[in-house]
């Protein structure tokens, strides 16, 4: 592919992932390759929060003359995602009729997804499955690039595996891809990277060989979010509540300081009290930490009725 062959068209590639995965590296290789072929190219990313586990994205646009540095929604020819939830976040940028979707199926679960401490709490992570998404885009590849990279002995080259997959979607020569890649990665890692690149290409070959399944045009039934967890929750018909033996409490306030939900307080008699029972998640930290065994976390029945459960505790045991 060069300028003469594709005079007026512009190609938009959106590369997304999580801080530290090598999104910028992939976009640098692509941008350099485009430049070598005489294209005008713009590569736009936002720094700052990226290192701290946040969302990272890089827009690469190339063609005869590029104006906007960013790709518009619904205009990406290729969406390359290094992580599954990120693939979903940016999916609406893909061209609906012709866009190619390439994503690593690995999950990087953000700490934010595991913050609710109460019993049966659900993980707040994307519910959509690779099959579901691939069936709905024009061209979709969902592969376990991290798994492939780990097999090669370095999970960090998963971005290069995906770069290999990307190389099959854009009409540059394979040799050019390899040269550019070798030029930009640290010298020590050239071999591993080239191998990873090849694995990404091989994966596509494999997929092309296997007979196509009939395309699922019907929208699959979406898994109702958190269905499974709701079930667990209903099974749990008991709440955990700390019961304090006042006579044994010497007011050291270890439990007050360590309670993650801040539902304990020392009263005027320097004895601990459960002041905000509705915030208690029954994590038992107070029970484990009390040096005087003054706190017991006990089970009390929870009403099945949702409305009633909001106004818990239904029957808070008396403080002894």
């Amino acid at each position: 592919m060069n300028k003469q062959e594709k005079p007026n068209s512009i190609t938009n590639v959106l590369i997304v992932g999580v801080g530290g995965q090598g999104v910028i590296m992939v976009s640098k290789v692509l941008a350099r390759l485009c430049q070598r072929h005489g294209f005008d190219v713009k590569q736009s990313e936002v720094h700052g929060m990226a290192k701290r586990g946040g969302v990272v994205f890089s827009h690469v646009r190339f063609g005869e003359k590029i104006w906007s540095p960013t790709v518009s929604e619904g205009n990406a020819d290729v969406l390359l995602a290094l992580e599954w939830a990120e693939a979903l976040r940016w999916l609406h940028y893909l061209k609906p009729k012709t866009g190619t979707f390439i994503a690593d199926t690995q999950h990087i679960v953000p700490p934010f997804a595991c913050l609710k401490r109460h019993r049966g709490a659900e993980q707040r992570y994307a519910q959509e499955t690779p099959e579901e998404i691939v069936s709905q885009v024009a061209k979709g590849y969902a592969l376990d690039a991290t798994g492939i990279a780990t097999e090669l002995g370095n999970f960090r080259v998963s971005n290069t595996v995906l770069l290999g997959t990307l190389s099959t979607a854009l009409a540059f020569d394979e040799a050019d891809w390899r040269d550019t890649l070798a030029e930009l990665v640290p010298p020590k890692t050239i071999d591993t990277n080239l191998e990873a690149f090849q694995k990404g290409r091989d994966w596509v070959e494999e997929v092309k060989k296997t007979p196509k399944k009939e395309k699922n045009t019907k929208k699959p039934n979406k898994i109702a979010p958190y269905q499974q967890q709701v079930k667990i929750q209903n099974d749990i018909q008991q709440d955990l509540i700390p019961v304090i033996t006042a006579a044994w409490c010497k007011g050291c306030d270890i439990c007050v300081k360590m309670c993650p939900e801040r539902c304990l307080k020392l009263n005027t008699k320097e004895v601990v009290e459960l002041v905000e029972p509705e915030r208690c998640t029954g994590c038992r930290i107070c029970e484990w930490l009390c040096p005087d065994f003054a706190i017991d976390v006990v089970k009390v029945p929870t009403p099945l009725n949702e409305e009633a459960s909001k106004s818990k505790p239904a029957s808070l045991p008396e403080t002894v």
Binding site: G54, G74, Q127, I133
Partner: peptide, 18 residues
Amino acid sequence: KNKLNIDITPTVRPPVLC
């Protein structure tokens, strides 16, 4: 109107301390 019509609730991923 030129957008893929798939309804997705994005996973919340704020920056965090390392």
